[in-house]
Design a protein around this nucleic acid. Structure first.
Lengths: 382, 382
DNA sequence: TCAAATTTATGGTATAATAGAACTAATAGA
DNA sequence: TCTATTAGTTCTATTATACCATAAATTTGA
């Protein structure tokens, strides 16, 4: 249900966003954009020339063509703007400056146990951002804003972090207001699974149009990308895969539910159940043919496939991408997962649903903290 | 990721759709539409006058106002167009003609066991539709198309029914092509849960913006409405709640999975487990204070709340609406469900998620078979 | 009863954006 | 060098809206 009207002015900004959606994936010619998007050539010319004039895009080399005049590729000007990012993790905090192509221009990572004062933490991070911008000689006006990522429950609409077991001391910290007032820049708070999924969606590593992105670390979070946009639900809390129950009367979880996936396949859970030293060790042993190690992988695949199968049955994706822990030598586990998911999910009877591991590089993942800010720029809802 | 461009012409059709979205809910004045939608008064006047001229809407009585000129309410002309519907159930087939306000103008229901020849079935249904149109003196041109609903797995994009345990003999029946060729009208095939959810969404019975609609009959299906539109997933198979597993190693299901919700709370399952004569009897007994009957309700709520909690954790809705079987004297069961879901779902820690039973009337539900066709008309993507 | 205030609806004009056609530019191959 | 082909630009007609002024209808209160 669309509640905003369209007028002559919105046309242009929507079409501009459409053009950016091509360019940010790869350099593209005017002709190709016109054909792909359905816009007239003249409209594409008009908009792109304006963007060139502004310095937002440039003409790069020309692309070979079978016959006729070569096309001139247009490309994003990566450093037209930058974005700052603050990534909160359980044991460290990561601060970075990122360009429009998600390349990291500056970063720092600090260990921290000082969760007592989230405001001081934000102060420090903001000071660091200012320092980076100065070093890079980038005036504040060229910084689009600050993206903040956190693993815990948060309200992305209001920009407030809620209390969680992991971040005990973050009781309704209004990250957005605080940082926005301090910096005078737009601030966007988001869940790290959502941000990573956005980044993955853009990376073209997998061709999925509708995928579930699962982040396995201490907890298990997820996000769903539906035709290129994040499925948010009512308040943006969608995707709590880790607290999905696979045993209605199973192991009690701190969340109040019983049988939560996290209680079965998180590293902590595996350590408790099997006494393993590390997941990597188990995988290495499994490849060496160790029976017990293979049994553990089988167990993980069994439990995980149940939760994944459920999510697939509900979301009907064309792919599932798993990020984090299980990406270590993933072939063996993923073969098992695929097989078991195929058995469990009725959706896979109608079309294949590929279970893949994320090939995102560490720096891409780090840069993802800015992806909401950068997306906002490219949408240019002027 | 929008892939169609906007031009001067699309503006108008989108704004017209915006106006219809107000009018189909309730009669509304031009002024109110203008304020609510953000469109200028002149644009609203322009479009509505055109629609009046076409006979698509009319001015009705004027609405009282505190001060100043009374506003003139505009209303849909319900019989400007009609839609035909064919609803396939396991043991009967339902055929109807519906107006733009989802009022049933003609209908018939037939018992049938003749699933041997789905084409003859469609032939019969289409003949009946033609008969109805003749009786009602409605020329074929005024019929928007034929909506077809079925409970089994189907591809709404291509309009093909797939084989399922319930409809064994429907092996890839191309309902759309067959009926479209026969009738020369647009044909839309859809899942009955989706159609009911669309109808519910329009009915304004509940204020939810993002709800999960669950249909409990022989199987358990569901559909998710996200900001007024159906969440479809990759190929429209989303919402297989009934084959969501709540016991990873539970009762084997014909779908290949184990522990599917259907295997626990479907009437058949309850009869097998508890030997009950009918669900209604159990409920009546429970209200009379019967201990065993209350135990059964508790059991249902336990199992159901697990699947619902999972779906809520994944979709983050503001409400869940349950339709069908459990709507019989629902207060007792729904109180239990609400309590258990609140315990199981982490989402309910952040905002309330109401578990309600659908108050849709039987005729509304029957008319829902046409809701995709009618929605298509009101969207008027000209 | 009548004027002021208020709200609804309409009409005219300026503006913005696109489509489409005609045109120029560049390129490969015969 | 000529031709077919594709890329990109420019100009004009079209279309839809916003904005402003105005008209119409209604209530309030003097």
């Amino acid at each position: 249900m669309k509640t905003y009207p369209h007028n002559v002015k919105t046309i242009k900004s929507e079409n501009r966003a459409l053009i950016f959606n091509y360019l940010r994936r790869k350099p593209t010619s005017r002709a190709e954009i016109s054909k792909g998007s359905g816009m007239s050539k003249s409209a594409v010319t008009m908009i792109t020339n304006e963007l060139i004039h502004d310095g937002q895009i440039v003409e790069t080399n020309s692309a070979p063509s079978a016959r006729g005049r070569k096309s001139i590729l247009l490309d994003i000007v990566a450093d037209y703007r930058v974005a700052a990012g603050i990534s909160l993790h359980r044991k460290h905090i990561y601060v970075c400056i990122v360009d429009l192509k998600s390349r990291i221009l500056a970063y720092a990572s600090h260990k921290t146990s000082d969760w007592n004062n989230p405001y001081r933490l934000m102060d420090d991070a903001y000071r660091e951002i200012c320092g980076f911008l100065e070093e890079l000689n980038i005036p504040k006006e060229r910084c689009l804003g600050i993206g903040v990522s956190a693993p815990g429950p948060l309200d992305y609409v209001s920009g407030v972090m809620m209390s969680s077991p992991e971040f005990e001391l973050f009781h309704n910290v209004d990250v957005r207001s605080y940082l926005q007032n301090k910096s005078g820049m737009p601030v966007m708070l988001d869940n790290n699974a959502v941000l990573l999924a956005m980044q993955q969606s853009l990376s073209n590593q997998y061709p999925y149009k509708n995928f579930i992105f699962v982040v396995v670390s201490n907890g298990i979070g997820s996000a769903v990308i539906n035709n290129g946009t994040v499925y948010r639900g009512f308040r943006g809390f969608a995707g709590e895969l880790g607290h999905t129950s696979i045993h209605a009367n199973g192991i009690p979880c701190s969340c109040g539910n019983a049988g939560c996936l996290e209680k079965y396949i998180s590293i902590q859970a595996l350590q408790e159940k099997f006494g393993i030293p590390s997941y990597e060790k188990v995988v290495d042993d499994a490849y060496m043919g160790d029976h017990e190690a293979n049994r553990i992988l089988e167990y993980i695949a069994d439990e995980f496939s149940c939760a994944l199968g459920n999510a697939i049955n509900l979301f009907d994706p064309d792919g599932v991408i798993i990020y984090g822990q299980f990406s270590y030598r993933p072939e063996k586990l993923f073969a098992l997962l695929q097989e078991k998911v195929n058995r469990r999910s009725v959706i896979t009877r109608t079309h294949p649903v590929e279970i893949s591991y994320s090939r995102m590089q560490p720096d891409e993942a780090s840069a993802s903290v800015c992806s909401a800010i950068i997306n906002r720029y490219f949408e240019q809802k002027l």
